[in-house]
Every structure is written in C-alpha cells, then in structure tokens.
Nucleic acid binder design. Structure first.
Length: 273
DNA sequence: AGCATTACCCGCACGC
DNA sequence: TGCGTGCGGGTAATGC
C-alpha cells in the first residue's frame, strides 16, 4: 500500500477522475455494500450504509496516509489502505464483486467504487469529529510550516533509533518503509542512529532528504514492487530499498539489509555512518 | 509506577 | 510443498 505518494495520487484521481473514470466529487451515493464488516472501524455496517445513502462527497483530501472525504450532509469518511488496499472504479452494469472487494459504494449513474483489500488490513471510518482518528498524527513533512528548527527539536526529544522513529506516524505523518530508507540514505544517516544525537545540520539534511524523496515518489506515482500496486515507477529510482547486495550508487559498497523494528531496512554501511 | 520503546501478530499472495 | 517476505500499525510486552 500505498505510502503517502500513492495516497496522494489516488486522492488526485478520485477528485479529477481519469479519462475512463468519473470523478468522485458530487456523485450521489445510492447504496453501500459491506462484504467484509471488519473493514469498517466505525460505525456498524447498517448505520454506515444508511448515513451515506443520498449523500455526496463535497471535498477530497489527505492527512498522513489517510484519505479524507467530506460529506454533503455532515460527517467525514476516512480511509486507510494499509498494505494491500486499493480503490477501483467499476463501470455499469454492476457485476458481481471482484475477489477481495470489502466495501462497494454505488452511485446514481451506475458507476461503483470498490475498496479492494486482499490482506484485510485496510480500515474505513465514518466520523463527525475526525480528531478521534487523526488526532495523534505528527506534522506533514511537506508542510512548509514545519521548520528545520521544529524538526530538530522533535528529534532531540526522542531516544529512539531513526528508522523506527521515521515510521512512527506520531512523529511525522505519511512516511513509510520505502521512503524512510531512501531518505536516510540521501541524508547519509545510519538507520540505527539514536534521534537525539543528530546535530542541527544533520537534522536539516534529513528533513530536506525526506521532502525530496516524497516529491520524487509523488512525481512517479509511487512504486510498484510486487503484485499489490502497479501504478507508478518509483521503484526504478530506488537507491537502497530492495537493493541488498547491489553496489551503492555513490561508493560501490554492497547495500546491506537488516531487520530494524521488524521492518526490513536497507542502507549503505559506508555512506551512512 | 509511569512513561517510552520494541516485539508480536494480523490475511493473503507471490517467488524461490 | 514449505518458507521467507511484504508500500502498516494496534496492542501487548518489555525496558528505563
């Protein structure tokens, strides 16, 4: 799934539609099918379907890795695709559900939008107060209001290792495994380095690297590294992720792979000290 | 004790 | 066939 860049991309095409797909904005919801109830974090399926019927989405946004739909009649739908979630438009006439369709939104003109999720990790909420779900998220790395000084202060406040810290959505919202590895490489920082040991200069370098890597990921519509998602081509621009044993693009030293906090982590043992 | 940090685990599909 | 791996994070367990 979709780390931030892909969520950004999905938000864009939900808003604008693609050549062969309608935009989500303004289309009236006539029914909601719940094929896998556990996908709904809240409320219960009957309430969810009843409250959405007759409404339309007036605005689409993103916060961290959450997609955000503002509803005409009040309330907000939040969607998290996790590892294998996907949103798929289905043209009329309505066919039987695809394998792994967990939630299907049906619209007045016959088009349908399916939340498809093989691994069943994805979640959808319908809330009045979105802070109940998004409240603990850290700042947006691409927000210009996040200053280098702020970022340095946040690093100073933590004794955690850099890699797990970058994946902690309370520290920073939206970074995932690929982008954490790529950003640490670009900043020349070792993933096991304790956060509070970074200098101001190193903190500034890291923030800059994070922003650059995220912008590159967005520009390439995310990465397609396995069967889950095949939209973007950022995988062709990885410096370290999934390149274990291959030569570092900067110094030629073989890239190392190591589990850190249960997540596979890739780095150059020479460039990242 | 109380906080911060880390490990386990959740469905499923794929490649070796 | 079996095993390792995974674009994530809630919760239980552990560490300080």
């Amino acid at each position: 799934m979709p780390e931030l860049p892909e969520v950004e991309t999905i938000a864009r095409w939900l808003r604008e539609g693609r050549a062969t797909e309608p935009p989500l904005l303004g289309r009236t919801i006539t029914a909601v099918e719940v094929h896998w109830p556990r996908t709904l974090a809240a409320p219960d399926p009957a309430t969810f379907a009843q409250r959405l019927t007759g409404q339309h989405v007036t605005a689409i946004g993103r916060r961290g890795k959450f997609l955000r739909w503002v509803l005409s009649g009040g309330g907000v739908v939040l969607l998290h695709l996790r590892m294998s979630g996907d949103l798929r438009w289905q043209p009329p006439p309505a066919a039987s559900p695809q394998p792994h369709d967990r939630l299907v939104f049906a619209f007045a003109d016959g088009w349908r939008l399916a939340f498809n999720d093989p691994r069943k990790f994805g979640r959808v909420w319908l809330v009045e107060d979105e802070t109940s779900v998004l409240g603990d998220l850290g700042p947006e790395p691409l927000d210009p209001d996040l200053s280098a000084a702020d970022f340095y202060a946040r690093l100073q406040a933590s004794r955690a290792r850099l890699k797990p810290l970058l994946l902690d959505q309370r520290f920073l919202a939206g970074l995932g495994n690929i982008y954490a590895d790529e950003a640490l490489f670009q900043a020349g920082l070792h993933p096991l380095r304790p956060a509070h040991t970074l200098s101001r200069t190193e903190a500034e370098r890291l923030l800059h690297a994070i922003r650059q890597v995220l912008r590159a990921g967005i520009a390439h519509h995310g990465a397609s590294i396995d069967w889950v998602y095949r939209g973007g081509d950022f995988q062709n621009h990885f410096a370290v992720y999934r390149r274990a044993g291959q030569p570092c693009l900067r110094c030629g030293t073989p890239i190392q792979r190591q589990l850190v906090g249960q997540r596979s982590t890739h780095f150059c043992p020479h460039c990242q000290v």
